[in-house]
Amino acid sequence: MRAPAWLTLALAVLWALVPGLFTGHDPLSGVPADKLLPPSAEHWFGTDAVGRDLFARVVHGAAQSLSGAAVAVAVGLVLGTLLGLAAGTAGGLLDGLVMRLMDVLLAVPGLLLALTVIVLLGPGTVNAAVAVGVGSVAAFARLTRAEVVRVRGSDYVEAAYGSGGTVTAVLRRHVLPNSLGPVIALAALQTGVAVLALSTLGFLGYGAEPPTPEWGLLIAEGRDYLATSWWLTTLPGVVVVAVVLAAGRLSKELR
């Protein structure tokens, strides 16, 4: 299972970086006479209702979905790590306040929280990514806080303080590096979660605007033709599922 997961993620990243290596079709324009063609040697994923090559749209859509996932994970990782580090280091009142705030965030369903943020920021890929990232802050903060509390009680941390190390130096050299392992594993897992969440928001119409190719939007565009043109929703959906499962596998390896 290890090699397929890595290959799946590597392929998705290459789609996002160099889509021209994988398809020569235009993802934005098509041939009306070729509309709703089933998968074939010329059109691997078939064509959509206006004759656009679906494989080309999936390949070019990787840039939207993966970049959005990267932004979402970065927002959650940075904000959550900083909050968790502050809470775990300071303890006391600050720890209690931060953790109660994280409890409130965890009590709100992720999709509902993301939709609330999008209402404030407006639709769009970047705004949707920020909304998903805000929803993951609590998970990163709680895990970081737990790891910081565990590490700061270690003998080598006490020895670092005893040898004259300042709080900032000890945090930078000892506490934070030794607390990041599980956090990085969580970031890999959250990448898959972010791809799925962004696809959901795109399906609901809060992500990229048509005709921009984005995985959730592609699935939404094909739902009206599900009975007659199954490939319009099934094949982009398979790509989303494969990337999410591969990210989960990567998280297990890192952990």
Rank of each mutant, 00 (worst) to 15 (best):
R2T: 12
R2L: 14
A3K: 13
A3P: 04
P4I: 04
A5H: 03
W6V: 15
W6D: 11
L11W: 00
V13T: 07
V13S: 05
V18G: 00
V18D: 10
F22C: 06
T23P: 10
T23M: 07
T23C: 10
D26Y: 05
L28T: 06
A33T: 13
D34L: 13
D34Q: 14
D34Y: 11
K35I: 07
L36Y: 11
L37P: 01
P38S: 07
W44S: 09
W44L: 13
F45D: 04
G46N: 06
G46I: 05
D48N: 07
A49L: 09
A49P: 03
A49Q: 15
G51L: 00
R52Y: 00
D53H: 01
L54W: 06
F55N: 07
A56M: 00
R57K: 00
V59Q: 07
H60S: 08
G61N: 05
A63K: 15
Q64L: 11
L66S: 00
G68V: 03
G68D: 11
A72P: 02
L79H: 07
L79F: 10
T81G: 10
L83Y: 12
G84K: 09
A86Q: 06
L94F: 08
L94S: 09
G96D: 01
L101Y: 04
M102E: 08
V104T: 00
V104I: 12
L105M: 08
V108R: 00
P109A: 02
G110P: 07
L111W: 09
L112A: 15
L113R: 10
T116S: 14
L120N: 02
L120E: 01
T125H: 01
N127I: 03
A129T: 11
A129L: 03
V130Q: 08
V130F: 08
G135A: 15
S136G: 04
V137M: 12
V137G: 05
A138F: 00
A139T: 11
E147Y: 02
V149G: 04
R150H: 11
R152L: 02
G153E: 15
G153V: 08
V157Q: 05
E158S: 00
Y161C: 05
G162P: 12
G164Q: 03
V167Y: 10
A169I: 00
H174P: 05
V175C: 12
L176G: 14
L180C: 03
G181L: 08
I184K: 00
I184Y: 11
I184E: 01
A185Q: 03
A185D: 01
L189C: 08
G192T: 10
A194V: 15
A194Y: 06
V195I: 15
A197D: 12
S199H: 12
F203V: 03
G205N: 07
Y206E: 04
G207T: 05
A208K: 09
P210E: 13
T212F: 06
E214Q: 13
W215V: 04
G216H: 04
L217H: 06
L217V: 01
I219R: 01
E221T: 02
G222D: 12
R223C: 09
R223N: 14
L226V: 15
L226F: 14
A227Q: 09
T228Q: 15
W230C: 02
T234Q: 04
V238C: 08
V239Q: 06
V240D: 04
A242I: 01
V243R: 03
L245W: 07
R249A: 14
K252V: 14
K252G: 12
K252M: 09
E253P: 00
L254M: 08
R255V: 03
